[in-house]
Simulated assay, not measured.
Amino acid sequence: MNDTDGPTRMPFGPDPIYPDWILPVDAAMLQYGIIDEPLFFIPDEPAPEGSPGSEGSSSEPKDPYHVVNACYDYLLNLRWTQVYEDLMSRITDEVFYVMFLNRRALANLNQFLSGYVGEIASDGFDPDEASLADLFVRDGELKRVRPPMWARRAVFYRDRGRCTACGTDLSGLIDTLSVGNYNHMVPLARSGLNDVTNLQLLCENCNSQKSDKVEDPSNRYRR
């Protein structure tokens, strides 16, 4: 929404001296190849006769009200379009890809979310929400669910088939007796989530030592 108030704008066009001006959202869609031409140009015509101006300090100039309103109307309608959905999907995928590689960040995220799960009473759901109540083993604690294959594969390859704590090879190529365990970084007993962002690969020994304790995940990453 900052795009609708103030000089947040991007130059567009072949003329570097007198370019057209577009909003960052259009620049992003152009960069991703979602659109070929901007969908909206920031108005540069003077305000209609008698319309109010927009006041601001000299260090932070403001656009006239008619410019702000035009930007606002464009963004308001853009949110319902497919190109905007495509942009959000692309950004979401890229952010998830980057964040999924950082176990410390994911553990912090899940520690934050566990605060909400811990406040949920399993008998506090309405009758039509029985399926949600069935997810809990007791107040603030979700039932244990075996991670689906796609989640196990994602975690296994992210962690390079090694225990993230001690580095034991769990691929089965070197030692067929080593067993990989998909451990909840924030344990279910501490209101952790059954979610791929809450999983790490541990060997059997490290998993049993961790048990249901909350510990910072290893900072061991392949260079």
Rank of each mutant, 00 (worst) to 15 (best):
D44S: 10
P48G: 12
E49S: 12
E49M: 12
G50M: 11
G50T: 08
G50V: 11
P52G: 07
G53C: 08
G53D: 15
S54K: 10
E55G: 02
E55T: 10
G56V: 06
S57E: 02
S59K: 07
S59D: 05
S59N: 05
S59H: 03
K62N: 08
K62C: 01
K62E: 13
D63G: 01
D63W: 09
P64K: 11
P64Q: 08
Y65V: 05
V67F: 08
V68H: 07
N69A: 14
N69Y: 07
A70W: 10
A70L: 08
A70F: 09
L75T: 02
L76P: 03
L78S: 01
L78I: 12
L78T: 09
R79I: 11
W80V: 13
T81M: 04
T81F: 07
Q82G: 03
Q82R: 14
V83E: 12
Y84D: 06
Y84G: 01
E85S: 09
E85G: 06
D86H: 07
L87Y: 09
L87H: 06
L87I: 15
R90I: 15
R90N: 11
R90W: 07
R90E: 11
I91H: 08
T92R: 13
D93H: 10
E94D: 15
E94I: 12
V95P: 00
Y97R: 15
Y97Q: 14
M99V: 12
M99A: 09
L101V: 00
R104K: 08
L106D: 01
A107L: 09
N108V: 10
N108F: 06
Q111C: 02
Q111L: 08
Q111N: 03
F112Y: 08
F112T: 04
L113W: 04
S114Q: 03
G115W: 06
G115A: 08
